[in-house]
Nucleic acid binder design. Structure first.
Lengths: 135, 135
DNA sequence: AATGCAAGTGCAAATCATTTGCAACAAGAA
DNA sequence: TTCTTGTTGCAAATGATTTGCACTTGCATT
């Protein structure tokens, strides 16, 4: 399944890329390079290969790279609809949001200032109701 | 002038802290630890002292720490009004915004989901009108 | 003003995420 | 199959930030 995708984006089909792609496509939330590396242990990928793969994917617009809660990069497949996820910084539970909550606001800023805003993150961090109780 | 501030927050008054404070208070935009270090060259501070100072300041809620455009931490004084800055990623020109553009949206998300959102960044990145023309 | 102790500091070394140089290797065009 | 070029592994480099340790300083207490 990943083969098509890779070819369409002008990338050679390799087992490393297929492995990374498969991990990403089965994850509902953005992952760190490290996490992807762990999930591909069976394929025996090298961590730097994972990084290089993710970077090619990003250039090819197959994945989106954002900055995670602790400054590490996190990667997720570029999906059609821009869905956003709330992530609890305590328990890592996640909740999907419909659409992009910041879309209108950003558009307004662009119109008022003439700036073109950088693509924003799809992961929004906070503390979930359960973890608030556990306080 | 910084002495009061430090004491009020239960921090010892040291020359390092006063120096960092003075650099921060005369900057309209958030700075990296490196930049602060450079600006305090005359005082001969050690870079790790700058980091430690900034971290104490953050714990004491004197400064706000955010993630800059290239993943480095950037620090700014915690000012009363939450003013936001647009920063051009090409020329680094900055534009102040009035108030917090994301306030209502975030509140809505909190109400809908029960999450308490993490404090968000005051630096918003994009490309300014001039740099767009220079394309 | 002298003293004592906890907190602050400099320095060098450690750490963490990420990148890079280089040699070996595999994908896909010819 | 062969050739060219992109891809990978490995180990070492990098850059931002942190930390261990010995020394110094702020400041509360004599």
């Amino acid at each position: 399944m990943g083969e098509e995708l890779l070819k369409n984006h002008g990338l050679k089909v390799t087992s490393a890329r297929l492995a990374v792609l498969s991990v990403l496509s089965s994850s509902p939330i953005p992952l760190t390079a490290e996490a992807i590396y762990e999930s591909t242990k069976k394929e025996g990928l090298n961590l730097s290969t994972v990084y290089r793969t993710l970077n090619s994917f990003e250039e090819a617009n197959i994945v989106k790279k954002e900055i995670g809660h602790n400054k590490e990069s996190i990667f997720s497949l570029e999906r059609e609809e821009d869905s956003h996820v709330l992530v609890c910084t305590k328990c890592h539970k996640t909740v999907k949001l419909e659409g992009c909550p910041y879309h209108e606001v950003n558009e307004a800023i662009e119109n008022e200032t003439g700036f073109v805003l950088e693509d924003h993150n799809t992961a929004i961090y906070g503390i979930c109701p359960d973890c608030q109780k556990k306080k």
